[in-house]
């Protein structure tokens, strides 16, 4: 019944979108003076965005590419062309290589873990229960404060001494001695990943929840009537219809993970050793602290290309998965 009622609405929406697209692209639409004027107006509305894009992205990008071939130090405007020297130096810098390793580990681990936790959480939060909105707000809360502030707070929670908040709790509840959360290389890496997962799972769960709510109940109703189990309903209805959400979520997690800086810097400052060093930290240190803007720009250019390639690959894989599952 509901399905029948909804169909005309969906069809109407599609028709409206098709008309709009046709209006924008059709050669007929360019003939009338009113259409021409409207298109001009719409174009004018896009100008501020274009100005912002050119001023804050395109010009700095071109500037960075140029600096990557010079010895620009951030102070003197006299920068000499040095060819590919900066690119050579990037690959011999031990902090850069260490930063690359942890950045990739963080990105992969947070993407997998957050996805694995956020989808079941979204499914749970989609069900009706008392205090549902409050629980949703609680899970969403870690996404609100600055990650740098969360890093400082978690620094106190994960204090490796016996007086640290988590260690005190473990001592009193389980009776185990202080765990060196941030003073052991492996544990420090795991701690940074765990806090990263904690800060973002709720946000991504809400993203999945928005997509879940757009799945009509009738699909589940029909599947139930046909005798589908809960797993089958999830596998054949929820998961395929959540694929667009997963594409968006993965894209955000991958780009955010590859650019990670504030969480490790506030939790561990990149240590112990170089174990939680990140690419962005290397770029900032090279450019600002060490006054090697040229080398930092070279690293930024390589990094941008690498991020672009990884994200493109991720989008291709996601699209194929969407096609296969739906």
């Amino acid at each position: 019944m509901t399905l029948i009622d909804e169909r005309p609405t969906e069809t109407a929406a599609i028709t409206t979108r098709t008309r709009a697209a046709r209006w924008w692209t059709s050669p007929m639409s360019t003939n009338g003076p009113t259409f021409q004027a409207d298109r001009l107006k719409i174009g004018l509305f896009l100008v501020p965005m274009l100005v912002v894009f050119v001023a804050l992205f395109l010009i700095p990008l071109v500037q960075s590419i140029w600096w990557s071939f010079t010895d620009f130090n951030g102070y003197s405007t006299d920068a000499a062309f040095v060819g590919l020297r900066n690119y050579e130096n990037v690959f011999t810098d031990p902090s850069m290589l260490a930063g690359l390793g942890f950045t990739l580990m963080f990105t992969l681990a947070t993407t997998v873990l957050i996805t694995a936790l956020a989808i079941p959480l979204a499914v749970t939060l989609d069900r009706a229960f008392i205090g549902r909105n409050f629980v949703r707000a609680i899970y969403f809360f870690p996404a609100i404060p600055s990650v740098a502030i969360l890093g400082l707070v978690w620094g106190f929670i994960l204090n490796p001494l016996g007086s640290g908040a988590l260690n005190s709790l473990l001592q009193s509840v389980v009776g185990i001695g202080p765990v060196p959360w941030l003073s052991n290389s492996t544990l420090a890496q795991l701690s940074v990943i765990a806090v990263g997962v904690w800060t973002s799972t709720g946000w991504h769960a809400i993203l999945y929840l928005a997509y879940l709510q757009s799945i009509p109940d009738d699909y589940y109703e029909v599947a139930r009537i046909d005798g589908a189990s809960a797993f089958q309903r999830f596998r054949y209805i929820t998961l395929p219809l959540l694929m667009p959400a997963m594409t968006v979520s993965w894209l955000l997690l991958m780009t955010g993970g590859l650019k990670v800086y504030d969480l490790p810097i506030t939790l561990t400052r990149g240590g112990p050793g170089f174990s939680t060093f990140t690419i962005t930290q290397t770029i900032i240190q090279n450019g600002v602290s060490q006054a090697k803007y040229g080398q930092a720009s070279a690293l930024a250019v390589i990094f941008m290309l690498a991020v672009g390639a990884i994200v493109a690959a991720q989008l291709i894989v996601s699209r194929r998965l969407e096609g296969r599952l739906s």
Binding site: L161, P178, P180, S183, N184
Partner: peptide
């Protein structure tokens, strides 16, 4: 000396001393 020193911030050490 505990290797935990590598995971401690200055203010955390100061708090331990003050306490």
């Amino acid at each position: 000396i505990s290797p935990d020193v590598v995971g401690l911030k200055g203010e955390q050490v100061r708090d331990e001393f003050a306490a």
